[in-house]
């Protein structure tokens, strides 16, 4: 993980500066401040993924609206909502709209930094997951159609004989395909092969 981008969206200059100073002192963050929700959304496409510290009470677009638009257009950001007058109704609304966290001002420094850490962890996880899927997909793409059919049969937990019968080939041939595909996927057990198939998304996680 290279840079940790934090976007501060707040109409209060004193607060923006104090967050920047804090994160600078904490180290390891690249910060950028916006004085309104509109300014932030306008620059969205050019921004690397990161955490957004979003003030709820702002003139113009308020925090919740900015959050919803952000969720609709881009899933790369983790949003932490900050508010001076928190109540449960707003908190629930914020979480439903996809906020990663909800912090009431004035807050403890540790709480803010912890929330940021959580956000970046989710971003990291999401990136790791994305690369695993990428690998699995390229592996699956190397299989022949027959090998793929056999894999699907294995995923369904069918015995070699049943797969052979359904594909109208001999059980011996099924065993050869099975050995080839496990070799191509670089796995030693059927269970591992099934996990790669799931990761690549060739079968739905839930039956249906």
């Amino acid at each position: 993980m290279s840079e940790r981008h934090v976007y501060i969206v707040d109409d209060d200059e004193g607060l923006r500066q104090s967050v920047e100073v804090l994160l600078d002192a904490a180290g390891g963050f690249t910060t950028r401040a916006f004085d309104s929700g509109e300014a932030f959304l306008d620059s969205l496409v050019e921004l690397p993924a990161g955490c957004v510290l979003l003030d709820l009470n702002m003139p113009g677009l308020d925090g919740l609206l900015v959050l919803r638009r952000l969720q609709q257009s881009d899933g790369r950001f983790e949003t932490i909502l900050l508010t001076g007058q928190g109540d449960i109704g707003i908190a629930v609304e914020a979480m439903k709209s996809g906020a990663a966290d909800f912090i009431e001002k004035p807050y403890d420094n540790g709480m803010l930094l912890g929330a940021l850490a959580g956000g970046f962890e989710r971003i990291d996880n999401r990136e790791r997951e994305a690369s695993a899927i990428q690998v699995a997909r390229s592996n699956i793409e190397r299989l022949t159609p027959r090998e793929r059919d056999v894999l699907l049969g294995l995923i369904d937990g069918k015995a070699n004989k049943i797969i052979a019968y359904e594909l109208d080939i001999s059980p011996r041939t099924v065993e050869i395909y099975r050995a080839n595909l496990m070799d191509k996927l670089g796995v030693r057990s059927v269970a591992e092969a099934v996990r790669i198939a799931f990761t690549a998304g060739i079968v739905p996680v839930l039956p249906g």
């Binding site: 607060l15 100073v21 600078d24 001002k105």
Partner: peptide, 19 residues
């Protein structure tokens, strides 16, 4: 709301100072 803004800023600055 009015007060939480400067107070949050105070907390942030002092947190930074502590760090």
């Amino acid at each position: 709301h009015e007060l939480s803004q400067p107070l949050s800023a105070v907390v942030n600055f002092l947190g930074a100072a502590e760090l």
